[in-house]
Design a protein around this nucleic acid. Structure first.
Length: 833
DNA sequence: TTATACTGCAA
DNA sequence: TATTGCAGTATAA
């Protein structure tokens, strides 16, 4: 036996197994205190500690004293404090009687005479002070008011938690805290609601939700000994028996630890496997970990696991893409009983950003963090597709793997409980649990690439790019720059060298600002300057974009295929997204050069042809079905070209009418902003013309407007926007997001529903053709020529007829638009038939 | 190394 | 008050 441990040694080591280190939050930060901060020297009430009677055993931890607080020496007496006081009174709570109050920074920070937010240093220096307060008062609950309080409280948590401590990520969560034996609820700071009246309803709703917890019986503080619920083994017979038992269980969560993110490149392996068949127990064992199994043993384990995968046990995973694709690749199992993806369900239950990772979910439900010892081994080795999981200490690896499986199982149970409470989400969960299987099927099948064509194009563009770069560097402008700065300018430096060259040295007039208020050098700016220099810079930019973003990803294909992911757990509107190694949803289309260079490389598999089917004019039709506007129904039924109608009215192109006017209006823009965007393209256009068109649009489609305004009213009452299949978008939303979400989201959900139904038939009839990609309202097909007509017929039936029958909210038929390539053709050559 | 800004591509 | 995404490069801490 070669390897890290012999079996005997391993078992011995298990006795003193690695402890999962959790950083303590209560230690004072070394060398940081009042001396390093110094705020106390300047203020009237230095080092304010705590006020309030705290009858409800709840501590309000706010940001810092303001002017009024400093003068009176009492927390939360200024404008924001009064707003909080009033909001609590409406809920029959008294701020001073029921709560204790303190701040994460105890002295008032000022700038001149004005209040300012505390700096990170001040927050660190003052941290030990609220810690003492918490330890003394032992509150049942802590309310964190605002982002600074969240920062101070969670700043020493693990990386996945620390990476984003914004209030929008933490608000309206109740997180158990084991360190202080309490529960933590984060809320917007009342001053934020005072400054932004639109936020006030959300603030009040959150507060009501928060104080409701105080009436409840206190949650039992959780058992932290999750490690003892994990067992592992390297004994062959035991592993085999456990897998056999798992096959007989009803629900089993599974998790793989692997040598890389994806299995497609050569020699990728599953290092260990964990599974859990009940909420308080999980089991893990090494798989391709070196030196544990003989070849024969490994083969038998592999067989046994394949039998488990194909057993009726319902499999639960925290990322279907990951476990399914690895299962197929390593075990060749195709038709498994995948039941539940806790990641997409987490997204449906709460669609916030950076929310669905297992680390974060475990933290927010159990305040448990683990895996620090394994983290360095998970990182991929520089310039390689491999991590170092095989070198990780076996006991740590197995513990980590077992905990992942355990928490996936616990999360599943929690989500099921939650869905009993939120029954309206059940259809959404069903749709995504099915949908995610179709997404991972696409990902596994992959997209064929013509590598030779890609190499040729890339070389050609590289040559042109190098030539132009040379020309730029030899030009007089570069020379001028060099005289001043003793170096050549970097023409790709959009925030430094290029603005310096254009606006300082060459003294061109800046015409556009960036988001952060600097002088922009984007395409429109350089186009307007229209000199040899700027035109060459633009050309180089374009070439580099094509090469570095698209062709380089295609060149990295494996056996002439790329396998981009299609994700369902990221977009807040419940659209899909695509990533890794390439976002397949933004391959160039408008620019002819870029389109040809990139789309010529995407081809059918040998002997097949590519097909692409779009829902035609989809978002307008979705708006129509959701709003049920009478005139829009009529116009669509009569085939009125809405975009042309307004194009003629304003004397602009149909293209601009559609993209700059109709969609912009529907998504919340107004005539003035639209006029400003159109003016550079149409210098003779009058503001009043656009204004009149706007009036005409909303007169004609007043039903759409009323539907939109209704959405806003409903949102104000309920705090969320409803969508078909029960999806909900929650949290603080601006008006335009309320308008946009149900349209954008529902449009994609129609596609997803269609993909699921089509795949059912594809499987049943064993088609050789496959969906290989998906772009919001279209599918890309790799089609066997013999099946072409049948695929078209079935898709049309499902996308036009069935979808309307099964989903009564759709009241106007969708239309499909097809394009096909020749046999062995490319995505660029596709034509309408 | 890690986080942020800018740019540019799609629907 | 148009929205939803991903990725490459530059730059600063």
């Amino acid at each position: 036996m070669i390897g890290f441990f012999s079996k005997k040694e391993f078992i011995k080591n298990k006795e003193n197994s690695l402890s999962i280190i959790r950083k303590t939050a209560s230690e004072p930060i070394e060398n940081l205190g009042c001396e390093q901060c110094g705020l106390w020297k300047e203020v009237k009430s230095p080092k304010m500690m705590v006020t309030g009677k705290g009858l409800r055993k709840t501590l309000i931890l706010a940001e810092c004293p303001g002017k009024s607080e400093d003068e009176q020496g009492i927390q939360l007496v200024g404008q924001a404090g009064q707003a909080l006081r009033k909001a609590l009174e409406e809920l029959n709570f008294d701020l001073d009687r029921d709560f204790w109050k303190t701040n994460v920074v105890a002295c008032r920070p000022t700038e001149g005479e004005k209040n300012r937010t505390p700096t990170d240093l001040e927050i660190k220096c003052c941290r030990h002070k609220w810690v003492v307060v918490v330890k003394e008062l032992k509150p049942d609950f802590i309310f964190l008011m605002g982002e600074k309080a969240v920062k101070s409280f969670f700043m020493f948590k693990g990386k996945k938690i620390r990476e984003d401590l914004s209030i929008s990520r933490f608000r309206k969560l109740c997180i158990p805290d084991l360190e202080f034996n309490t529960q933590v609820i984060s809320l917007y700071h009342p001053s934020y609601a005072v400054r932004n009246p639109d936020v006030l309803p959300t603030f009040k709703r959150d507060l009501k939700w928060a104080v409701n917890h105080l009436g409840n019986k206190r949650k039992q503080i959780l058992n932290t000994d999750f490690e003892s619920q994990v067992s592992s083994s390297t004994i062959f017979e035991e592993v085999m028996q456990r897998i056999k038992d798992a096959s007989k269980s009803e629900y089993v969560s599974i998790d793989y630890e692997t040598t890389g993110l994806r299995p497609f490149k050569e020699n990728q392996e599953i290092v260990s496997i964990g599974f859990s068949h009940c909420p308080n127990e999980s089991f893990s064992f090494p798989f391709c970990y070196p030196g544990i199994w003989t070849e024969e043993e490994l083969k038998l384990i592999k067989n046994q696991w394949t039998i488990f995968l194909e057993s009726p046990a319902k499999k639960i995973v925290h990322s279907h893409q990951m476990e399914n694709i690895w299962s197929r690749h390593i075990f060749g199992s195709w038709e498994n009983e995948w039941y539940w993806d806790t990641m997409v369900v987490a997204h449906i239950l709460d669609e916030r950003d950076k929310f669905t990772s297992l680390d974060f979910q475990v933290f927010l439900h159990w305040e448990f963090e683990y895996g620090e010892e394994i983290e360095p081994f998970k990182r991929s080795v520089l310039n390689s597709n491999f991590n170092r999981m095989k070198e990780a200490p076996l006991d740590g690896l197995l513990k980590y793997n077992g905990l992942d499986a355990l928490f996936t199982r616990k999360l599943f149970d929690l989500q099921q409980e939650e869905l009993i409470k939120q029954e309206s989400l059940v259809p959404a969960v069903a749709l995504f649990n099915e949908g995610v299987k179709c997404m991972s099927e696409m990902e596994y099948i992959g997209i064929p690439i013509d590598s030779d064509c890609c190499k040729q194009t890339d070389s050609r563009l590289a040559l042109e790019s190098a030539m132009l770069k040379n020309k730029l560097e030899k030009g007089e402008e570069a020379n001028l720059f060099q005289k001043i700065h003793q170096k050549l300018p970097n023409f790709n430096s959009n925030s430094k060298d290029l603005p310096e060259l254009l606006f300082k040295i060459l003294k061109y007039k800046p015409v556009k600002k960036t988001i952060k208020g600097k002088d922009s050098v984007d395409e429109s700016v350089l186009q307007e300057l229209n000199t040899d220099l700027t035109n060459n810079i633009l050309r180089v930019r374009k070439l580099n974009k094509i090469r570095n973003t698209y062709l380089s990803a295609f060149l990295d294909s494996i056996e002439n295929k790329i396998h981009p992911s299609f994700n369902l757990h990221l977009a807040r509107s419940f659209r899909s997204s695509s990533s890794n190694p390439i976002n397949f949803q933004n391959i160039p289309k408008k620019d002819k050069d870029a389109q040809k260079a990139t789309r010529s490389v995407v081809v059918s598999s040998p002997g097949n042809l590519l097909g692409e089917v779009d829902f035609g004019g989809h978002e307008v039709r979705v708006v129509c079905s959701l709003s049920k506007d009478k005139n829009l129904i009529k116009d669509l039924q009569n085939g009125v070209d809405i975009h042309s109608l307004f194009a003629e009215m304003m004397g602009i192109s149909r293209f601009d009418s559609k993209n700059q006017f109709v969609f912009a209006e529907i998504y919340g823009s107004n005539y003035f902003a639209i006029f400003k965007n159109l003016l550079p393209l149409y210098p003779k256009l009058k503001e009043n013309t656009v204004k009149k068109a706007e009036e005409e649009l909303w007169k004609r489609y007043s039903g759409v407007r009323n539907w939109q305004l209704n959405l806003v009213e409903k949102y104000k009452k309920t705090g969320h926007v409803d969508m078909p299949w029960g999806f909900k978008r929650r949290g603080y939303l601006e008006r335009n997001k309320i308008f946009n979400t149900p349209v954008q989201g529902s449009a994609f959900l129609c596609l997803l529903w269609s993909i699921i139904e089509i795949n059912k038939i594809k499987k049943k009839e064993k088609w050789k053709s496959s969906i290989i990609g998906q772009i919001h309202d279209s599918m890309l097909w790799d089609i066997n020529p013999n099946e072409k007509d049948h695929v078209l017929k079935v898709c049309n039936k499902i996308m036009v007829e069935d979808i309307m029958k099964e989903n009564p909210w759709i009241i106007i038929p969708f239309i499909t638009e097809w394009k096909f390539s020749d046999i062995n053709g490319s995505w660029f050559e596709m034509k309408n038939e």
